[in-house]
């Protein structure tokens, strides 16, 4: 609790929402690494998930515009290279409206950590379809059903060039917390897609009105990445692949930028 602004609890999230569990794992990860929260800048967008770090965590938070946290985080990291920059926002924010920033930040391999909270929906605005809504799910903007294929974000970020990529659910709290620690430690773009319950804006249309309904679904559908090699795309269609996708060394952007500045203008 020493990392939290205790006076504001309980959180403003709906009962059963996964955002609080993500915050819990984030605070535990900071605690176990022994980091000084004053050295962390959490950058968020707009949405329920964008309220995970602030006002709850005692670190600096930059609330930015919808879809643009990665652009702001790029500026912060370039000017404050010694600070840990962590972006936390939703699927609508980072993968929807801000999708291009995501791809290109990963391609540049900027040294930040991104925790994308994928709750399958635009939660804060009442449950509109998002790029990650599963096919067949009704939402307020697809009242019959969603006829689009959902986006595989972790796979996309891995292909774009990030140094570290993982996917976990809010049921896998211990691996998630450990993965957050690895993201902090990793030099380069670290990305964790976190599947998280939204029983209110997403679940109510598909009969999943409790946080537990999601955790049970995660438990049932999750399959470790080590076990999927021999499975076809069809067999994996309804499964959630969890685990570490990528962990590699690759030239990092701000370091290259500083080196170039040194060579060209001597500072």
């Amino acid at each position: 609790m020493k990392y939290l602004r205790e006076e504001i609890f309980p959180t403003k999230f709906c009962s059963g929402c996964g955002c609080g569990t993500v915050l819990n794992c984030y605070a535990h990860a900071i605690d176990e690494l022994g980091l000084n929260p004053e050295n962390i800048v959490s950058v968020t967008g707009i949405g329920c998930s964008s309220w995970i770090p602030s006002p709850y965590l005692k670190c600096d938070t930059l609330h930015t515009t919808h879809g643009r946290p990665l652009a702001f985080a790029t500026g912060v990291k370039i000017m404050k290279p010694d600070m840990d920059v962590v972006v936390i926002a939703g699927d609508g924010d980072i993968a929807g409206i801000g999708g291009n920033h995501l791809i290109h930040s990963a391609r540049r391999n900027l040294d930040i950590s991104v925790f994308l909270v994928n709750n399958y929906i635009y939660g804060m605005t009442g449950g509109q379809v998002s790029p990650t809504t599963p096919m067949g799910h009704p939402t307020t903007t697809t009242p019959y059903k969603n006829i689009e294929h959902p986006m595989k974000i972790a796979e996309l970020v891995a292909a774009a060039g990030a140094s570290y990529v993982a996917r976990w659910t809010t049921y896998n709290v211990f691996p998630l917390m450990e993965s957050m620690q690895n993201a902090f430690k990793k030099k380069g773009f670290s990305f964790i897609e976190i599947l998280s319950p939204c029983p209110v804006a997403h679940g109510r249309k598909i009969g999943m009105r409790e946080g537990q309904d999601y955790l049970n679904m995660f438990k049932e559908k999750a399959i470790k990445i080590e076990k999927v090699k021999n499975l076809s795309e069809k067999e994996l269609e309804d499964r959630i692949v969890i685990g570490k996708f990528v962990d590699r060394e690759r030239t990092e952007f701000t370091e290259s930028l500083r080196k170039l500045n040194q060579e060209r203008i001597g500072k």
Binding site: M1, L4, F9, P10, T11, F13, G16, C17, G18, C19, G20, T21, L23, N24, C25, A27, H28, T170, Y171, V173, F174, M177, G211, L215
Partner: peptide
């Protein structure tokens, strides 16, 4: 500590 980490409200330690 599963309950401690799963709790969305930091209500259990």
């Amino acid at each position: 500590r599963l309950c401690e980490l799963l709790c969305p409200e930091f209500a259990i330690f």
